[in-house]
């Protein structure tokens, strides 16, 4: 057990150092994240220019907290080194991982955690700077139930994104040329919109929301943020956590199955 932990700590440490090897790239990547917040922040800020305005059940404080929350939660949930897995499958570099005496999922999860640790440190710094510049009115949650549920929902979100990423990364087993294409469609487009990282999902008509909440994507960004904001009843929070856990189980099994099949189809093209 101790040996196992040491192994993953080493991966974590090396991966953390690797992020610093390309300082400019990392800096520019974080800069882009901040840029993306600007459009969303000012769009909502313009809509809620009158502080007493209320749209879709949101007031100015809550919507701007939501926007700032996106920056932090995206850094935690959506930053992952496992985005490289698809290209490793496509290029045949996956061989290197397969011959190592380590479980490939655990290896990449350890790398993801190191990436998230670094990103969250920067995201907190950026949030403080943006807070000083933009001076938005923020909503602070003090209810212990919601805070605890928020932490739990973040844990679920981390696992969900990891499983979604690995399932998407399996596409190149059968279509090596589609490595980046599948990531673009599922991770960049579908996850970005359906997770609520551009706009809150509860602004949509009730019928559409009901369908969306049955999918795993809202439990990546939208649900944790709603939990933090205390916008949901205790029962709804528990129900949401239940659905999130269900999706974790379902996606974990799907990932294992898809990868088992994928590895049998894998021909190490390019190697």
């Amino acid at each position: 057990m101790k040996k196992n932990l040491q192994k993953f700590y080493s991966i974590f440490r090396i991966s953390f150092q690797q992020e610093f090897a390309y300082k400019l790239s990392f800096f520019l990547w974080r800069f882009r994240n901040v840029m993306q917040i600007f459009l969303v922040f000012f769009l909502w800020s313009a809509i809620f220019s009158n502080p007493s305005t209320e749209f879709f059940g949101y007031d100015r404080d809550k919507i701007l907290t939501y926007v700032f929350g996106i920056l932090i939660i995206k850094a935690l949930v959506l930053s992952a080194r496992a985005v490289d897995v698809a290209s490793e499958v496509a290029s045949g570099d996956l061989n290197n991982s397969l011959v190592k005496p380590i479980n490939i999922f655990k290896y990449w999860f350890a790398r993801d955690i190191s990436s998230k640790a670094l990103n969250i440190i920067f995201a907190i710094g950026e949030t403080i700077i943006l807070f000083i510049i933009l001076r938005p009115p923020l909503f602070l949650q003090t209810n212990p139930f919601y805070l605890l549920a928020f932490i739990l929902s973040i844990g679920i979100a981390l696992l969900l994104f990891f499983f979604i990423l690995f399932i998407t990364s399996a596409v190149p087993f059968w279509m090596p040329e589609a490595a980046w294409g599948s990531q673009f469609l599922f991770i960049v487009v579908v996850v970005e919109f359906l997770s609520g990282s551009i706009f809150p999902l509860d602004i949509f008509p009730a019928a559409l929301q009901k369908i969306l909440y049955l999918l795993p994507f809202p439990y990546l960004i939208f649900f944790p943020l709603q939990t933090y904001l205390g916008s949901l009843s205790i029962l709804s929070v528990l129900k949401g956590l239940g659905i999130g856990i269900f999706w974790c189980g379902a996606l974990y099994l799907s990932m294992k199955k898809v990868w088992d099949k994928g590895l049998k189809a894998y021909q190490a093209y390019g190697r």
Partner: peptide, 14 residues
């Protein structure tokens, strides 16, 4: 690379 084209086109349209 028809499949790649389809993924990107669909992604952009969506």
């Amino acid at each position: 690379q028809g499949k790649l084209l389809a993924f990107f086109l669909l992604g952009k349209i969506v």
